[in-house]
């Protein structure tokens, strides 16, 4: 596995699982979830127009997503470099292991605060995206 591929894999995993605090609604959710919500607001604007807080909400979510995507990209690059240097012969396996641990951990541990859902806080990964 090349470092570039590992970086990409780690970054996507981070976007998927790393809980990111937001200034909106007090939510702590993955960046991909923020992107999803920004998309929901964008579609609402396209369907209904930019009434009320719609536009500022969209821009706020977009700003959060951009910030976290950038930070997580830097973190993924650093982590990939660290893994490659630590175990050059098992780099691919180590990267896959990190991804697996992150996904499993986020699936088991209540890392998220998602006040957007209809019935409960949905504090684990699968619940966030369900």
């Amino acid at each position: 596995m090349s470092r570039k591929t590992a970086t990409m894999l780690l970054w996507i995993t981070a976007l998927l699982v790393v809980p990111a605090p937001t200034l909106l609604f007090g939510a702590v959710i993955p960046t991909l979830r923020i992107v999803e919500l920004a998309g929901v607001v964008l579609i609402t604007i396209l369907v209904e127009g930019a009434h009320g807080v719609a536009l500022s909400l969209f821009l706020g979510l977009l700003a959060h997503a951009a910030l976290y995507a950038g930070l997580l990209w830097v973190a993924a690059r650093l982590l990939a470099r660290f893994l490659e240097r630590t175990a050059p012969n098992a780099f691919g396996g180590l990267t896959a292991g990190v991804v697996a641990i992150a996904v499993v951990g986020a699936s088991v541990l209540p890392l998220y605060d998602t006040p957007f859902h209809a019935t409960d806080p949905h504090a684990r990964l699968l619940q966030v995206y369900r």
Binding site: F25, V41, H51, G52, V53, A54, L57, P115, F116
Partner: peptide, 15 residues
């Protein structure tokens, strides 16, 4: 996403 819906719809009626 009821909370998101609340913010979008309620603010529209607060204009």
């Amino acid at each position: 996403w009821p909370l998101l819906g609340y913010a979008l719809i309620n603010s529209r009626y607060g204009m």
